[in-house]
Design a protein around this nucleic acid. Structure first.
Lengths: 141, 141
DNA sequence: GCCTATTAGTTAGCATAGCTATATAATATT
DNA sequence: AATATTATATAGCTATGCTAACTAATAGGC
C-alpha cells in the first residue's frame, strides 16, 4: 500500500461518512410522501431517467427481478406508474411514471433538498463553492 | 426566495444527488457481510459511538422502539451484540457490540471504503483535496 | 418448420425491517 | 398508596429483500 493509496482510502472514508450524514439529514422528510423508500427510489429513476423495463429498473436499483416486480406492483396500485406492453419483444414490460407519480416524486425531492439547503445556512460563499465543486466531481466518478 | 437562497437550494440538490450516488457505489459490498442494512447500521452506531440503550439507538437510527427491539434481537441471535442490564434504572437495557460484532462491522466498512477509494483513482491531487475539504464541511453541518 | 435453450417477468414462500397498538415492568409523582 | 410516566417488549400489519420454480416469448440449431 503506497502513501497515495492510504490517502485515497482516508478520503473515501470521509466521503462515505459524509454521504451517510447527508442522507440521514433528509430521511425524515420521506415520511410525508406516504410511500416506502424502495418505491420512492424506483419512481425517482423513472422520473429522472425516463421509462425503463422491470429488469433495467432492478439492475439500476441493485435488487433482483422479483423484488422489482413487487415494487412496481405497489406503485401501479397507487396510480404512480403504469405498465406498458412492448410490441417489439412481448416478454418485456416497460414502466412509465404517471403525472401523479411525477408530482409526488418532485414534491418529495423538493422537501428533501430544502431540508438540506437549510443546513447550509451558516456557510460562507467560498465553502458553498467547495461543496458545489465536490458534488460535481462525485457526479463524474 | 432570494438569489442566495436559490443558490443554496441548487447546491443542496447537487449534494443530495452526490450522496445518493456515493452510497449506491458502495451498497453492493454489504451483501458480503451477511446481515441486513438495518442491523449493519445499528451495529455501526454501537461500534463507533459506544454502547447505547435501545431507545437511544432507535432515536439515532430514526426508527420506533419496537423496530429497534427486533433489530437488536437479530444482532443478539447472531452474537454480534449483547444486552446489558442497567442497575441504575432497571427499565433500560444497554446494547454493546461483541468482539465478533466489531470485527464484522469493521471488515464491512473496509470493503465499502476500499470500493469507493478505487473510484477515486483518476482524480488529481487538487481534486482529492477538494473532496476532503467538502467532506470535512459536511461533517460539521 | 420443429426442438431446445435462453430471456423477461411473475408467483410462491421465507427473512428482515418498518409501523401502530398494547402489555409489562420499573420509576416518579402526588 | 395510588397513579402517571417511562423503557422495553409483544403482536400483528405492510413493505422490501432473497431464492426457487413457473409461464410466456424469443432465438438458435438442425
Amino acid at each position: 500500500m503506497s502513501r497515495e493509496n492510504n490517502q485515497k482510502v482516508a478520503i473515501a472514508d470521509a466521503l462515505h461518512a459524509g454521504a451517510i450524514r447527508v442522507l440521514r439529514m433528509v430521511r425524515a422528510e420521506d415520511a410525508a410522501s406516504g410511500i416506502g423508500p424502495a418505491q420512492l427510489s424506483a419512481l425517482s429513476v423513472l422520473v429522472f431517467m425516463g421509462e425503463k423495463s422491470v429488469g433495467e429498473l432492478a439492475a439500476l436499483e441493485q435488487v433482483r427481478g422479483p423484488t422489482m416486480t413487487r415494487i412496481v406492483d405497489g406503485l401501479v396500485e397507487k396510480g404512480l406508474v403504469r405498465r406498458v406492453a412492448m410490441p417489439k419483444d412481448r416478454r418485456t414490460v416497460r414502466v412509465a411514471p404517471t403525472p401523479q407519480g411525477r408530482r409526488l416524486l418532485l414534491a418529495g425531492r423538493m422537501r428533501r433538498v430544502r431540508a438540506l439547503a437549510r443546513r447550509l445556512d451558516g456557510l460562507s460563499t467560498a465553502d458553498l463553492k467547495s461543496l458545489q465543486y465536490a458534488a460535481a466531481l462525485i457526479a463524474r466518478l
